[in-house]
Amino acid sequence: MPLLKRGTLHPISLVVDGVEVTGHAEPRMLLVDFLRRVLGATGTHVGCEHGICGACTIRLDGEPARACLLLAVQADGRRVDTVEGLASADGALSVLQDAFHRHFALQCGFCTPGMLMTLQGFLEDNPDPTKDQVRAALSGNICRCTGYSEIVDATLDAAARLRNQDQAATNPT
């Protein structure tokens, strides 16, 4: 890769929520700002801008990561999944989003995009987690409204439903 000079825009292309997109970014532009300002994908929130609050959590090539601690140019050629890709095209909520809804696992909603992206990956790796494991996974996402209890409940509920779905898929009878 050539040296990217400061103050000038560089073309980057990446796959965001399954769609190939291109845009221009200065070297110092954060990935979260690229998503929000260049692509207009404001579903990903930006909070503390130093990796503590977790609101900007996305998945980079499948791994949960902070979009405020990544440069847009670092995501060139890679896959980024955001909260905007969770619901299906007709607007139906994902199992996890639906569980959040039913359990009142959000109030102001600021932390929710990061919560969902952390937990989406976590449940893929840990389909049958304990409460403590969920709480440990959530330690990197700060919520100032819920006190976390409802979020933990929603996660355990979603995990159970996803396991049942998997079981139904493998035992079609």
């Binding site: 890769m1 990217l4 400061r6 070297p27 110092r28 954060l30 801008e49 140019v73």
Partner: peptide
């Protein structure tokens, strides 16, 4: 936001 810099990947 960070101050300006050059970037080499």
């Amino acid at each position: 936001k960070p101050a300006e810099f050059d970037y080499l990947g």
